[in-house]
């Protein structure tokens, strides 16, 4: 499949799933009414359901998927490791820790922005630290190990706060955050993250060729003219910003950042640079479909998006790992 065809298909499917995302839910709204509601203004129950509940959560799932898919593909290209994911560098954990701290101290109630802002701040602290490290270390392995260390440290911090949470409501909030959900996302949350998304994707756009040439290994890529420290720093920075934005919208959601690039890579002739943006679109589609599945499941309490993403993603991930050849394709 040519690159342009792939983009056309993914964009088409994206539009369809976003529309379906605005339709699907416990309250039945006929297709025609949904269509009318999307393109109309004016107060009605349907309008409120579509514009205040379903549209924000569908868009949030889509944008979170985009962030995680692009971050996963970029990190896999940078680290030349098909098992890399946004969480591997510890930025997801830092973002979650930021949110957990705010919830633990009861600041979440003071402002609707406090949790998203804390998550973004956590992600940026982790990202800036990693960007600084990335500039000064030569080895990707060292970078991964530092990421693992950061992730473990932030995980320990979250576990500590969860175990000593004084208030059961705070504990419930923290668990919700750690499990990942877009159920209560508002348009304000999305707008708050929009500049970060824009910035992250803008930086990644300029790194695609560099990610492709890293196929040859760092040493050879360097002799071909790739400015390795700069390339590494910008990829780390952009994936950090995108992951921070994703965590601030939905909490921790795993596997989609690994699975989407794996499915896309064969379609772009295993060029890791060309896989970045299609992976973002596919991961977005996967998360919207996962979120719709949650809404349709006949459960008393809604299952969290992070749980369903892991339930769908983990077996696919294991299958890919089992079937992949010596080239880790």
């Amino acid at each position: 499949m040519s690159e342009s065809k792939l983009y056309i298909v993914l964009t088409g499917v994206s539009l369809i799933v976003i529309f379906l995302g605005c339709m699907v839910g416990p309250t039945q709204i006929p297709i025609i009414t949904s269509l009318k509601t999307i393109f109309s203004v004016g107060p009605s129950v349907e309008h409120t359901i579509v514009w205040e509940i379903r549209m924000p959560r569908t868009l949030a799932a889509y944008l979170v998927g985009m962030c995680l898919g692009a971050s996963g593909a970029a990190l896999q290209g940078l680290l030349r490791n098909p098992l890399a994911e946004p969480g591997v560098l510890g930025v997801s954990a830092c973002a979650s820790l930021g949110a957990t701290i705010v919830i633990y101290y009861g600041l979440a109630q003071s402002s609707v922005y406090s949790v998203p802002l804390a998550a973004v701040t956590g992600a940026l602290v982790g990202t800036i630290f990693l960007a600084f490290i990335a500039k000064n270390v030569d080895s990707v392995t060292t970078l991964i190990l530092i990421g693992v260390g950061i992730s473990s440290l932030a995980g320990a911090g979250m576990a500590l706060l969860t175990s000593i949470a004084p208030n059961p409501f705070y504990l419930s909030d923290m668990v919700t955050w750690m499990l990942g959900s877009v159920a209560n996302t508002s348009m304000v949350d999305i707008l708050l993250c929009a500049p970060l998304l824009f910035l992250g994707f803008l930086i990644l756009l300029g790194q695609q060729k560099g990610i492709s040439v890293l196929t040859l290994g760092e040493e050879t890529a360097g002799t071909l003219g790739l400015n390795l420290p700069r390339n590494r720093m910008l990829i780390v920075l952009s994936t950090g910003v995108l992951t921070g934005a994703a965590v601030s919208l939905a909490g921790v959601i795993g596997f989609v950042g690994i699975v989407a690039p794996h499915l896309i890579r064969p379609l772009v002739e295993h060029d890791p640079g060309k896989a970045v943006f299609p992976s973002a679109l596919l991961a977005a589609i996967i998360l919207v479909v996962a979120d719709m599945t949650i809404r349709l499941l006949p459960t008393d309490t809604e299952i969290k998006l992070g749980v369903i993403a892991a339930l769908i993603g983990a077996p696919i991930f294991m299958m890919i790992v089992y079937r992949r050849n010596s080239f880790n394709g």
Binding site: T215, L216, G217, A221, R265, H270, F327
Partner: peptide, 30 residues
């Protein structure tokens, strides 16, 4: 510098199983 010198490393392994023509084309990076 890359426009003056090209390098063939000892390690010839590739990270991803791309097509032959695409791998060769990476040589035009600089």
């Amino acid at each position: 510098l890359a426009r003056y010198m090209s390098y063939l490393s000892q390690d010839k392994k590739l990270a991803w199983p791309g097509k032959v023509k695409n791998i060769v084309a990476l040589g035009r990076f600089s």
